[in-house]
Design a binder for these strands. Structure first.
Lengths: 258, 258
DNA sequence: ACTGTCATTCCGCATCGTGGAACGAGCTGT
DNA sequence: ACAGCTCGTTCCACGATGCGGAATGACAGT
């Protein structure tokens, strides 16, 4: 038959993960019939796959007989996240050494950006960004640079979904204005957040290439230390770190959003 | 044959998730031969399964040809987490309404506790616990109540693995002393953290029943507001909320630790 | 350059998963 | 309260799918 050889993918596995993602996309409880409609698989097949996942705790069945993603996935996700952080650490450390400000690795997560790794600067006054924290897209360097990688329609959708609250006087709160900036960001290959999330804090971010990686790295610090003149010096350093990370991660498999 | 009928589990799926967890347990890059040794499966079989996972981005292959958990799992995990938070929200809100202090849902994650949902109190002075944050087991109410659910050997192991740093003057830093407290906690069905993580902050926690759920809910606030006399009033409220949550989640599939 | 280890590919076999159809529980509308 | 319907669950025989032992190829250490 076909599966054992060089062909790509174990069918049942592929299908199971397709179902998991459909469940994530649905954003809540999903009926098995809906999964059947969305996936084109037989309900019987879906039931068997989902039952297996339930048995292992990756999917939970509610009293309503509908299904949702299970808590076991949280463990795996957290672990994967911590692992990514480990790979990123040396690259971020190098950035901190070279630039002297806190360096972050962030990934797109739905309509937010989540910080997955961070190396703090040695200065006593520095950024306090908790790893795992989710922040808005419109007011951060990493958010803007990630938005610039997406098709404009998707970018607008995410901005509307997540909202654009004014964090400071300088925050851009108009979707159209932000969308107009994105082509330039994509073109120059980096984005700057100039006190748009927190007054006096500047942040320079570049995307991590390699497919629709949905990843970005940045350095951020007080505008007094991280002057505008520092940006052109920081960008190539960031870009080479991003390239190194991308190479190390190999080919991508990530997906922008849900 | 056996698989199609009422038997439990699709073999290839079961195996794939077993491999994912072995990779998580390994704590980093894993060679395929190590997976074979740990799982007892044929390398050929493992290779095919892992290749499928790599193709979908759930596993990443490093230049060293070893494998690690992939970023796509972060998305699923975050999603599952948010989903859990959504279910828990109404129950936590009810607790905040009744007790007036911040309510949390936490789960065991390796040798730490991770907060997966939170409803802040209305007071302006309140706990600042970021969802997704991982804290130590020994100095939190949720940590202690979760430890009390585990076999003593496992509890000790987790304490040693995670360490027991002194966060305040009152933090218990001796494993044996903490282990001695656990039976009483398991017996009374709740744990109190009395300024052991942060001076002046008290926290009451109960487990979420339903198998080795590895879940707990808590309320926490300043000792001045959340007096010791408030504990006996809070406990039954917490327990009924925990019971309601457990019922809603149905039967469990979670696993204590790695 | 040689050797041992380890990931990867090949291939025949039968195990395992598949999906159509029957069953039964739960919900809606009347 | 009853009937009708929808939707999740179970059953079954077919054959496609995944299995694993062994061959191949890539690497690192000596």
């Amino acid at each position: 038959m076909a599966a054992g050889g060089s062909a790509e993918g174990v069918q049942s596995l592929d299908r199971a993960f397709l179902l998991l993602e459909l469940m994530a996309d649905a954003g809540g409880e999903v009926a098995i019939s809906r999964l059947a409609a969305d996936s084109g698989l037989a309900v019987s097949t879906i039931h068997r796959l989902v039952r297996t996942l339930v048995g292992r705790g990756y999917v939970r069945q509610l009293p309503s007989r509908r299904y949702v993603l299970g808590p076991r996935l949280i463990h795996l996700g957290e672990f994967a996240s911590r692992m990514l952080a480990t790979w990123a650490q040396p690259h971020l450390t190098r950035l901190v050494d070279a630039i002297g400000e806190t360096a972050n690795l962030a990934m797109l997560d739905g309509d937010r950006v989540v910080y997955v790794a961070q190396v703090p600067s040695r200065h006593s006054m520095r950024m306090f960004t908790e790893v795992g924290r989710r922040v808005h897209l419109h007011c951060t360097g990493v958010g803007k640079v990630l938005l610039a990688q997406l098709p404009p329609g998707t970018a607008r959708e995410l901005l509307v979904q997540g909202g654009m609250p004014a964090r400071t006087e300088l925050t851009v709160t108009d979707p159209d204005e932000l969308l107009r900036q994105l082509p330039a960001i994509a073109d120059q290959g980096y984005a700057v957040d100039d006190g748009e999330q927190e007054t006096g804090v500047r942040c320079v971010a570049v995307p991590v290439p390699g497919g629709a990686a949905a990843g970005a790295i940045s350095v951020s610090g007080p505008a007094g230390r991280l002057g505008l003149d520092a940006v052109p010096r920081a960008v190539p350093l960031l870009q080479s770190a991003a390239a190194a990370l991308a190479t190390e991660l190999g080919r991508d498999g990530g997906r922008p959003a849900g």
